[in-house]
């Protein structure tokens, strides 16, 4: 084992990263995301496992996952399917139970979250020993592909409103004066994104506290993390909207927006 260390810079690292991939009808995307994960984890040499949580997809995602397990090995690809579609939030809880890593990546399986950012997440985490590292589309080189003007407007207004209404205390606590912070900061944090790296213990304690479902779940996680004074790092990511299959959470974005805001308002 010692002889291999030289070719992989991070192989002697004790940390292990469990990637949770919840899937529902991702037959076309799953092999591609797994291939990319194997590629980037392989190149950087970090210890990892991929946990696929399929909710009885009628398109046969699970069958594809089984093939992938044969190709890449049972230690790398773990299958933890459930009988029927029970939602994203509980899929994470289910996945965490089976994760053996001390760190957990949460990402979508639809290729909108690119595994090439994984090494950056890990480095960022180590840099500040952060409790969680969140990908952001609204900072630095971050951005999106495949959104029309309407979608950008809705998302940005949403992020803006959320930030300035839910987080004034956070903005103040950061030390600088409220107004300049509001002027410069709102929308910087990506509240609805879901490409994140957590310390396992932190994720467990957050998931325990979160009550909302689906779309709002991601926001609640980060709001509660701030509340509990967990430290948060950010990595700019590019977000390429899904190429294959369709969004399950999309629905009416304006309705989700109002619902999310009210939920966070009333519960945090």
């Amino acid at each position: 084992m010692a002889s291999r260390k030289t070719s992989h810079p991070n192989r002697d690292n004790e940390d292990k990263y469990s990637v949770l991939l919840p899937t529902y009808n991702e037959r076309e995307n799953l092999p591609l995301i797994v291939w990319l994960l194997v590629k980037y984890f392989g190149e950087s040499g970090y210890n990892y496992e991929i946990i696929v949580i399929d909710d009885g997809s009628p398109d046969g995602t699970l069958e594809i996952a089984e093939q992938l397990q044969k190709i890449y090995g049972e230690d790398k690809i773990l299958l933890r399917p459930r009988e029927k579609k029970l939602g994203l939030g509980t899929a994470y809880i289910h996945g965490i139970k089976h994760a053996t890593g001390n760190f957990i990546f949460i990402m979508d399986a639809d290729l909108s979250h690119h595994p090439k950012f994984i090494p950056e997440f890990i480095e960022k985490q180590k840099e500040g020993n952060y409790d969680l590292v969140s990908g952001t589309r609204y900072q630095g080189n971050g951005g999106v592909y495949g959104w029309d003007l309407r979608r950008k407007l809705i998302r940005l207004r949403f992020n803006f409103l959320l930030f300035s209404t839910v987080f004034p205390s956070l903005v103040r606590s950061r030390g600088a004066n409220f107004l300049t912070q509001v002027l410069l900061r709102p929308g910087a944090s990506d509240l609805t994104g879901s490409f994140r790296l957590y310390k396992k213990k932190v994720l467990e304690s957050l998931v325990e506290r979160c009550v909302s479902k689906g779309y709002v779940f991601q926001m609640e996680m980060i709001v509660r993390a701030r509340q509990l004074n967990y430290t948060i790092g950010e990595v700019p990511i590019s977000f390429v909207d899904r190429v294959y299959g369709e969004s399950k959470l999309g629905g009416n974005e304006i309705v989700s927006f109002v619902k999310g805001l009210l939920t966070l308002f009333a519960t945090t």
Binding site: L111, H114, Y138, N141, G142, G143, V144, Y145, G146, L149, K152, L153, L156, R157, F160, L183, P186, G187, S238, F239, V240, V243
Partner: peptide, 21 residues
């Protein structure tokens, strides 16, 4: 003004989309 500015300067990740393809 803020939202307008951000929409106007929102990164379109053409490169990333191409790379992914």
């Amino acid at each position: 003004a803020t939202v307008g500015y951000r929409v106007a300067t929102f990164n379109d990740c053409e490169e990333a989309a191409k790379e992914l393809q």
